[in-house]
Structure formats: C-alpha cells, structure tokens
C-alpha cells in the first residue's frame, strides 16, 4: 500500500503521467482500488505462492498481468486516466514493487525467526 500510493502520487503529481478524476464518486472508487483491491491482490498472491519459493517467480507474470488488468480496467471505467503512460512501464512498476515487497517479506520473516530464538 505504501509503495503503490507513493508510486501513483509521484507519477500523477510530479510526472503528470496519470490524471485523477474530478468526479467524487470515481475518486472514491480510485481510493478503494488503491487502499483495498490492489493491496489485497498482492497479499493474496504472496499467500498462495508462499509454499515454495519458485512458485512466486513462476506465477509472477500472471500476478503482474492481473494487477495491470485492474489498473487498465480502472482507466476504461474512468476511475483515472493514463495520459502519457506506456504499458511496459506498468510491467516495470509492478515488477519493482514485487521485488521490494518480496525482499521486505524475507527480511521480516528472518527477523521474526531470530526473535523466536
């Protein structure tokens, strides 16, 4: 959630590559997509692929495709608009988010195991 919000704000405010909607109901939908749907999908992905390490990498293209699907569906439904955006940047964005999350998760698990003794 932290990563996604930061990326979206930088891309919208600083780079002008996204345009947020002016309609209050669509903006509420955007907020729900950012706070609920995308983080839940990411957590679900980590949950179902956490049994074996290689599963995370094998299913990664599917996970990224789903997230990009939600992103572009939001665009089609008018929740926000990609103004100067390229599909490949979404691939890079979600891949980078996944890598950071994966290593943050591994670091946290290591810390938890260390504390358990």
């Amino acid at each position: 959630m932290i990563l996604d919000h930061n990326v979206m704000t930088v891309v919208t405010l600083n780079l002008g590559m996204y345009q947020f909607t002016e309609s209050p109901s669509d903006y509420l939908a955007l907020t729900l997509v950012r706070i609920v749907i995308l983080p839940l999908l990411i957590v679900w992905y980590f949950d179902i692929t956490s049994m074996k390490a290689y599963q995370k990498w094998i299913w990664l293209p599917v996970g990224i495709a789903v997230l990009i699907g939600v992103e572009y569906l939001s665009d089609v439904l008018g929740v926000f608009e990609h103004t100067r955006w390229n599909l490949w940047w979404s691939v890079i964005e979600w891949f980078a988010v996944f890598v950071v999350l994966n290593y943050a998760w591994l670091w946290y698990r290591k810390m938890l195991r260390k504390e358990r003794g």
């Binding site: 979206m8 704000t9 919208t12 947020f20 903006y27």
Partner: peptide, 22 residues
C-alpha cells in the same frame, strides 16, 4: 516494525487521498 508500518500506511493513505487533486 508492524506498528511503524501501520502508522506510516495510515498517514500516506490519508494524505495522498486528500492532499492530491481533485
């Protein structure tokens, strides 16, 4: 660590929702 992450998340979600356009 989780408490810090929770607080930072709440702050970011609220700030980025109401300090950005529209």
């Amino acid at each position: 660590t989780l408490v810090v992450l929770f607080v930072v998340s709440v702050a970011i979600v609220l700030d980025h929702s109401i300090m950005t356009p529209p």
